[in-house]
Structure formats: structure tokens, C-alpha cells
């Protein structure tokens, strides 16, 4: 239920940001552009994870779901030569299927047990990748995933994806679309039903919202977008293995959303952006980087539990407090 007066205020910055991203290939190096592509993929991942948390169900297997999408894409594209326009949707559907299977036992648990159980089931999937050489390639993973292709050399509609700029724009389109769809879902009746489950699941049951069904549904929707992100990742990096989807990566994802906050739609975007920036700036201190991120995580959890998204309202109420006014809602 968005307020119409605030939406016009929001769209201008959004257009400016998209414009900046379109302009980026003009000014940054090819290496930086690949980092930006990864960043865009991470945006999809973080925003879909934020959706997941709206019912209060934090998971520890979102990264694994991304891996499912990546593995599905890699295997389909490499072993079966499936073109991207079939491989990507198929990968997303497969990820939704896996999400559904995971959600059935998970929906029997809540809170911390849900969190831990999701981790255990995720590790189970990761060990499946490690164990079965066909088709997952064991510890070495799937290598040499073909670049996606649109047309052949000579076709008028041919796009050369060996050029990282083209893949960057390809990813940008998906990111913008995903963000748009996730925004609509967040503001929809279904989105509000999820938030209501977080607020009071008994009340939801009493007014006819089937809580279990909706918790399974959100897991699948979040899984869908994680699958898309994984699919893009597989095409971007060309090779994937079980170590890409270890717990450490999941902790980084959690750091993004903790730093940004999950209450508003914008929190995770702020989080991924600021933390990716810190990550790149800290590149010279490579070995010390986990320590830095560990510190950041702790400082935010202890001193700013709502994340950066609460910063503006806090500053506002601080200054209003200085002039002796009470904040009006």
C-alpha cells in the first residue's frame, strides 16, 4: 500500500542511479566492469534475501540456492548445450523446485531452529555437489561454461558476449527487472501478508491466511530470484565449484543486509553498495579483510541494530530533539 505522494519523490533518484549505471562502462576499466557485474548480481541476491526475511524467517541457505541456479545453468549450458533463453528460466524453475523441497521440512520449524536447519539442509546440498562427480564435477565443479550467445557472428542481431560491456548490460537489465518485480511484490497484498505473518502469525491464521503455505511460498519466490542470480553468475565467471558457496559467503550476504537493514526495501541496496565499496577499498589489506568485516558486523549489531536505513530517521529525530520538537508521524 504505497503512498502516492512519496513514490514520485522516489522515482527521480532511481532514474538517476540507473542512468549512472548505464554510463559506467564509459569510464571504468574492463576489470572494474566485471566487478560491477558481480555487484549487480549481488544486488539481486541481497534484495531477494531481504524478501525472505519479511516473514521473520532468516535463512542460512540463500547462497546455496544461488548455487543451485548456477549449477543448473552450468550443467544445462555445458553438458546439454541449452541456449541461455531456455537455460536461465529452467535454472530458476529448478531452484524453485529445490526451494520447495527444502521448505517442506523447514516450515515445521520457526526462528532459530529454522535458521540452523536451513544451514544444515544447505550444507547437505553442497555436499551433494562435492560427492557426485556426474553431473556436478565434485570438488572441481563445473568448468568452461560457455558464454551466452545471441546470434552468430555475421547475424545482424549478433551480440558478442566475450565483450564484458555487453554482459554487463545484459545483467543490468535483469537486475532492474528483478528489483522492479521485487518492489511490486513487497508492496502487494501478498507482501503485506508476509509482513503480517512476522507481526502475528496466529492473527493471520484467524483471518484466513494459511501461514504455512505463505512461508513455503516466500521461500520459493526468494529461491526463484536467487536462482536467476546464480544463473547470471555462472555465465559471468564461467566456472563454479562447491567452495564458491561456502558458509563464509553466506556470512557476507548477512553482513550486507545487517548493515543496510531489512525493514525497508532500500536497506539491502544501501548495504550491498556500501559493503561492496568497503570490500574494494580494503583490497590492499586482503588478509585483514575478514577481520574488518567481522568488526563491522559486530559494530552494527551492537550499536545500530536497524542498519544504515535507520540512520536518516535517527539524525532527523536527533535534530528535532535539539530544537525541542517531537517527531510527528
Amino acid at each position: 500500500m504505497s503512498k502516492s505522494n512519496s513514490s514520485s519523490f522516489i522515482w527521480l533518484p532511481v532514474v538517476i542511479v540507473i542512468g549512472l549505471f548505464c554510463f559506467a562502462p564509459q569510464v571504468v576499466s574492463a576489470y572494474r566492469l566485471e566487478l560491477l557485474t558481480i555487484f549487480l548480481i549481488n544486488v539481486i541476491l541481497a534484495q531477494s534475501y531481504r524478501l525472505m526475511t519479511t516473514t521473520g524467517d532468516w535463512t542460512l541457505c540463500h547462497y546455496i540456492l544461488m548455487g543451485v541456479g548456477a549449477y543448473a545453468t552450468g550443467i544445462l549450458a555445458k553438458k546439454f548445450g541449452v541456449p541461455f533463453y531456455a537455460a536461465m528460466p529452467l535454472a530458476a524453475v529448478i531452484t524453485v523446485g529445490v526451494s520447495l523441497i527444502l521448505a517442506l521440512p523447514l516450515s515445521r520449524t520457526i526462528g532459530f531452529a529454522f535458521f540452523i536447519a536451513s544451514f544444515a539442509l544447505g550444507e547437505f546440498i553442497r555436499h551433494v555437489w562435492l560427492k557426485f562427480h556426474t553431473p556436478f564435477g565434485g570438488a572441481r565443479g563445473v568448468n568452461g561454461i560457455p558464454k551466452l550467445e545471441i546470434g552468430q557472428q555475421g547475424d545482424w542481431y549478433f551480440i558478442d558476449f566475450w565483450d564484458s560491456t555487453n554482459f554487463y548490460f545484459f545483467t543490468l537489465i535483469f537486475t532492474v527487472l528483478a528489483l522492479l518485480v521485487l518492489y511490486r511484490i513487497d508492496r502487494s497484498r501478498v507482501g503485506n501478508a508476509w509482513k503480517s505473518i512476522y507481526a502475528d502469525s496466529e492473527l493471520c491464521e484467524s483471518i484466513g491466511i494459511n501461514v504455512t503455505r505463505y512461508r513455503v511460498l516466500i521461500f520459493c519466490v526468494a529461491g526463484f530470484f536467487a536462482g536467476i542470480a546464480g544463473s547470471l553468475l555462472a555465465y559471468q565467471v564461467g566456472s563454479i565449484d562447491p567452495h564458491n558457496f561456502e558458509m563464509v559467503e553466506m556470512v557476507y550476504l548477512i553482513i550486507w543486509v545487517v548493515v543496510g537493514g531489512v525493514k525497508t526495501y532500500w536497506g539491502p541496496l544501501i548495504g550491498v553498495f556500501s559493503m561492496s565499496l568497503v570490500f574494494e577499498l580494503a583490497r590492499p589489506l586482503q588478509e585483514w579483510r575478514p577481520l574488518l568485516f567481522g568488526l563491522i558486523l559486530i559494530l552494527f549489531l551492537v550499536f545500530m541494530p536497524g542498519g544504515l536505513e535507520t540512520l536518516l530517521p535517527r539524525i532527523k529525530s536527533f535534530f528535532l530533539g535539539l530544537v525541542g520538537k517531537k517527531e510527528v508521524r
Binding site: W58, G111, F112, F115, V251, I254, I255, V258, E287, W288, P290, L291, F293, G294, L295, I296, L297, I298, L301, V302, P305
Partner: peptide, 23 residues
């Protein structure tokens, strides 16, 4: 500082783990 919020405490210790490994 995070008492009462099991997820916060859990994640904070994840950060502490990173710190210990690096040190």
C-alpha cells in the same frame, strides 16, 4: 548487548570468528 535476540548474538559471534581467524 544483544541479549534476547538470538539471531543478532549468533551473527555477532560469526563476526568474532572472522576476527579470531585473521588474528
Amino acid at each position: 548487548p544483544t541479549r534476547g535476540n538470538v539471531l543478532s548474538g549468533f551473527m555477532a559471534t560469526a563476526g568474532a570468528g572472522f576476527i579470531m581467524q585473521v588474528l
